[in-house]
Write a protein that binds this DNA or RNA. Sequence first.
DNA 1: CTCCAGGTTCCGG
DNA 2: CCGGAACATGGA
Length: 300
Amino acid sequence: VPAPDFDLALTLGCGQVFHWVKAGEGFRGVIGDKAVYVEKQGGELLVTRGCEDIARRYFALDHPLDEIYATFPDDPDMAAALEFCRGLRIIRQPLWECVATFITSSMKQVAHIAQISHTLRQRFGRQAEGEDAEGESLFAYPSPPDLARLEEADLRACALGYRAVNLLGSARMIASGEVDLDAISALDDREARAMLCRLPGVGVKVANCALLFAYERFKAFPIDVWIERVLREFYFKGKRRVTVRRLEEFSSRYFGEYGGYAQQYLFHYARKTWKEREASTAPAERRSPKPKVRKTAAKR
DNA sequence: CTCCAGGTTCCGG
DNA sequence: CCGGAACATGGA
């Protein structure tokens, strides 16, 4: 499949999707219910035979990156993030898969989100069509009905912790038809966000991730701990008393129609470059005494 | 052993 | 509207 301006590794490794694994020169994973192998070869994407169309759509090879880049704000940090992430595409994820994985993402590192995704797929997901080179089978993300019939303990056993009740509750609301993920597509951003927030474990941040990574709402701008650091460091340096509200209204205005794209570029750029910077600093400095008060268990 | 992670929800000021 | 605290688990 022709795939110009496309960095596959960056797209799969930037924290928008969590189940793809490196395999030889490429990656293996599941798109919907089909096992797929993908590999970048020059300006083209090598794809499992028969999966060309779904791959083209999933990887959003139709997104006009040049047009999108042209809408990015003109500042040095944004420019650095763009150079660092050029070719990263916001993919089109299946609705439930996206909502569910981000429900499980709360207060978790990217590596662990991936681990949870794999466990859920293997234990409760349907086997995907096709298999990888080693003959190992891959699994689709468990559907809402698949999860709805489980008990909280089944999910707790997947290291979900307090997220178990949220994932289960959301699966049940969707399986029962109380919330219709497909119907949300017809709503405007604001209504769609409100509807998603009816699901337990879905707040503004997770709803925005779903809007951006599954509903193709490019204005959605998820603010997590990393992006909050980015905004404060790059755009509110030295300012005091900057509330999350302030950050939200600034970002929706400043980053424009493709704010979500800009967000993902800044997110990945900061996460990678700041991580290295921290790793290279002297460990001794980091162990300075913290005046922080330990949690006092004065409850109950 | 401590710190912290792509948060949400509930509570008191 | 805003800041705090609780909530589980496992990398680093």
